[in-house]
Nucleic acid binder design. Sequence first.
DNA 1: TCAAAAGTGTTTCACTTACACCCATGG
DNA 2: CCATGGGTGTAAGTGAAACACTTTTGA
Lengths: 236, 236
Amino acid sequence: MSDPATPDEQQRVALAVSTVIFALRPHPTTRRLAVHLPLVRRIRAPHQGRWALPGGPLGASEGLGAAASRTLGETTRLRPRYLEQLYAFGGPDRAPSAAERTVSIVYWAMVRPEEADAGVAGVNVQWFLADELPELAFDHNLIVEYALWRLRNKLEYSRIAAAFLGETFTLAELRGVHEAVLQRPLDPANFRRQMEASGRLVPTDEFRTGGRHRPARLFRHDESIHLADNGPLTRA
Amino acid sequence: MSDPATPDEQQRVALAVSTVIFALRPHPTTRRLAVHLPLVRRIRAPHQGRWALPGGPLGASEGLGAAASRTLGETTRLRPRYLEQLYAFGGPDRAPSAAERTVSIVYWAMVRPEEADAGVAGVNVQWFLADELPELAFDHNLIVEYALWRLRNKLEYSRIAAAFLGETFTLAELRGVHEAVLQRPLDPANFRRQMEASGRLVPTDEFRTGGRHRPARLFRHDESIHLADNGPLTRA
DNA sequence: TCAAAAGTGTTTCACTTACACCCATGG
DNA sequence: CCATGGGTGTAAGTGAAACACTTTTGA
């Protein structure tokens, strides 16, 4: 796809893919929505016993994104609603015993809450609050921080919040996503106008009833607009 | 650095690094500054004879960024003022004869005009206008487009324009960089206030004389502020 | 003294923010 | 009928854009 050198010029390295998976779940104490992510416990050296991002080796006949999606599913049984490449890591000082060079491509993904509960179950896979993580294996703390920065950034100029919601949703639900990600309350009136002005929302004829208050109109996202910038491949 | 799987689980692949190098040079007809980039002509299959991004294989004991910097220097004799990872490409359908899998990490870089002229010389290395490229090898056209998008984006919220300029510069020179990259004229008065308000500029006591007009004050960039977001490694 | 660019002041307009207020529903 | 959140209106504040104007130099 994108390289000028021919194979015989190139060095062979081990290549793996990891993924930062975000989901919104109730905070254990405040019960308000908060950004969570699943981690897997390492069962072998290096960093045995530590929590790490789910991932695995690159398959022989799959793309990088496909590998991220697959290894993510194998370790956590989650299927991402959104998947985007984050960064490639490949310092020469990786292997502890100087055995072999490894480069990892890290992706970040978003899943819906329903999926989140179904997927993660075992004692070796567990949800953590995104901003209260233990010390992770490798430089995974740094990676999560960077992914969070990207998530918060993209919320402002893309309809990425859709990945945390169903097909239709009320403005209050959408606002809840923004508040959970940005960790601050937003004015309902101004949020509504902002969203309406963005042109990304399409009102439906349906309403969400059941609360002890006026029913809220359901919206959907404009399908003609791409979910978000997903790198060069989906931008063209 | 960042991978949960151990070497024996991982597939071995060929890995190479390419770089999109930007420099500002006078437009061949209008003589105004325009974004250019150097390309190298491929001397072997696949895509023999086509222009491509400079690059090469990853060395055994160097980081990804170091490899980009090195291969860039070997092919064009340029030394980047700024270097940032762009994207990793690794579709399974790369090799024409289905021989071996190759993944490339693409970087983008900026160099100063003086360096630009010195570096690129041979018939197999040549400068091109960034928005008037011929059909390149692989998917390099797509990559350049994405890199240009990142460059224009970053101009707005970082002091990245510094990489195109010397240690000190006038506001007109800085504005010239912005105008060349964004391809539209900017109001001098408003540009001045924007830059002053950003807090990234430090005025010096020196002035640029010689024009048939009032001398312009020289500024420098605040060194305490990082050049730009350079991925997770330099953000923490 | 004049052209040209440096640098300042000012008006306008769009958008965000804060908050008051009415609407519709379930209990 | 009233508490609760849905939804609308509006005035103040902030910042960008447009442009008139003054300043300072080289020729």
